[in-house]
Design a protein around this nucleic acid. Structure first.
Lengths: 123, 123
DNA sequence: CTTTTATATGATTACATGCTCATATGTTAT
DNA sequence: ATAACATATGAGCATGTAATCATATAAAAG
């Protein structure tokens, strides 16, 4: 090629505000924490699960009650409860055949509350 | 068929704790709010976006800086910024060719903080 | 004007995921 | 033991989505 000019897409490295980038990189959480945090939000980021968690923020409920509230199959509810359990968002206790689910810690209800404030502010 | 016994999977309607279900149904948010809330969490539920939002919780940054921090293409960063913008999680101002992004309201940083407390508690 | 640079966006692809169906597991009762 | 029932789980399908590439805007400089 006769031209050695390059048509750059995106910024050159020397154009970055290095101080900002260094500050942010320095205070950045490590990838493991970021991924775990993202997974937590992702788990809350499906309407079925959001509704389950909201219901459980009101009171402890068995799978049967949740199935009635959710309007999807019992299988579907159980699958989603497992997802929530795996991310430590909910816990459960068994009483005979019945499994009662509830939120795992107070952060979960706080997350919902904070999210609701953001959402209802923008309506 | 000679048998008319039904082998039920899932609970019978008359087995549900009706009072619990009624209480929860009564205080349930409407579907629109649940869906919007879920969308908000979903948007925070991807490691790339989580990291972008975390970075922006530290200071205002341009796309170029973010690209350097994120380690993916500028195109990828821009696509994710649009997603965050569409859910009102971030806002931006232009200064010449440069677009500076920042968090849209204080709830966003609070959500991150609350999520981090949950995550770091379980490590 | 044309060139350069910062950002935005359409198309494509590879992969993830929520739902239902069928079935398994675990608990109580007969 | 067998039956009944609450819950859990594997398979399969249908849909969603994050990444990149190529290209389009937009703003400043020559």
């Amino acid at each position: 090629m006769s031209k050695n000019k390059k048509k750059n897409s995106g910024c050159e490295i020397n154009y970055v505000n290095k101080k900002s980038v260094n500050r942010v990189n320095k205070s950045m959480k490590n990838q493991e924490v970021i991924v775990k945090l993202a997974e937590t939000f992702k788990v809350l980021g499906d309407p079925t699960r959001t509704k389950i968690v909201y219901a459980l923020s009101k009171e402890e409920l068995c799978v049967c009650d949740l199935t009635s509230i959710m309007g999807i199959s019992q299988s579907g509810v159980s699958h989603q409860l497992r997802v929530l359990r795996n991310m430590d968002l909910v816990k459960y206790r068994r009483e005979g055949r019945v499994a009662y689910y509830s939120l795992n810690d107070e952060h979960i209800a706080n997350l919902l509350e904070e999210g609701l404030e953001h959402v209802e502010e923008k309506l």
